[in-house]
Amino acid sequence: MTGKPASLLEVRDLTATFHRDGAPSRVVNGISFDIAPGEAVGFVGESGSGKSVTARAVMRLAPEGSSIEWGGRIRFQGQELLSLTEREMRDVRGRRIAMVFQDPMASLNPVMSVGAQIDDMLVRHTGVSTRAARKRTVELLGLVGIRDPAIRADDFPHQFSGGMRQRVLIAISVSCQPDLLIADEPTTALDVTVQAQILRLLMRLRRELGMALMLITHDFGVIAGMVERVYVMHRGDIVESGEVDTLFAAPKHAYTQALLAAVPRIESTRRPA
């Protein structure tokens, strides 16, 4: 990286506390990190390390039926997200920050055509008519590599494979050209062969649309070649961070070493060094 560009996302002392049936439990313990415009940053950690909750904090999305109390500061393009009203936050979600989720099989509404699920987002954020939105929807489906997009737009989710559904979900997330795309374990639920395709698609879109990417994964193998910097999370804390190459070459924290050791391919390249 050349110089130090102004931050797109600046998170300071972020805490997340779950409130479920009265008993609070803290899952993120005051972490700080930055993402520059157009930069790709990885968040690595096991399940339960707080990385997904961190991602959702940026979107201010709490799981249905529970409430999360966020603390600290989340500045996005100079705007403090945690002090926005829910209504103002709805304009940020999808429009300026978009998200791709882990399980493409469960992330599409089964009773709406996939096209309609892109249309409603375009109509909501760009104020175009449904008809005009459909034109853009077809372009988007083509962009993410769906063949015959004009015809496929009217198909329902169950007519698509897992990989194709994740492509549709990616089309949804980039439809309003967000400045930051959060991808939460985007390939975990997919076949190995499809994983690489989806990662390549994310890389291409990031380049073409100039988005910043926040890639969340438990798998260092996914991070390699995808991001410039990495934050390693463990039990709600960031235990290590740095340039991806440096981190791979010389992990300082024992936890990071353990995570890297879990990836055979990386380990074999590391050993001679």
């Binding site: 799981p63 989720f101 949804i172």
Partner: peptide, 13 residues
């Protein structure tokens, strides 16, 4: 509690 409702919220609908 389905994921697609979470996705809908993430879309800012």
């Amino acid at each position: 509690s389905q994921d697609y409702v979470m996705v809908a919220r993430a879309k800012g609908l």
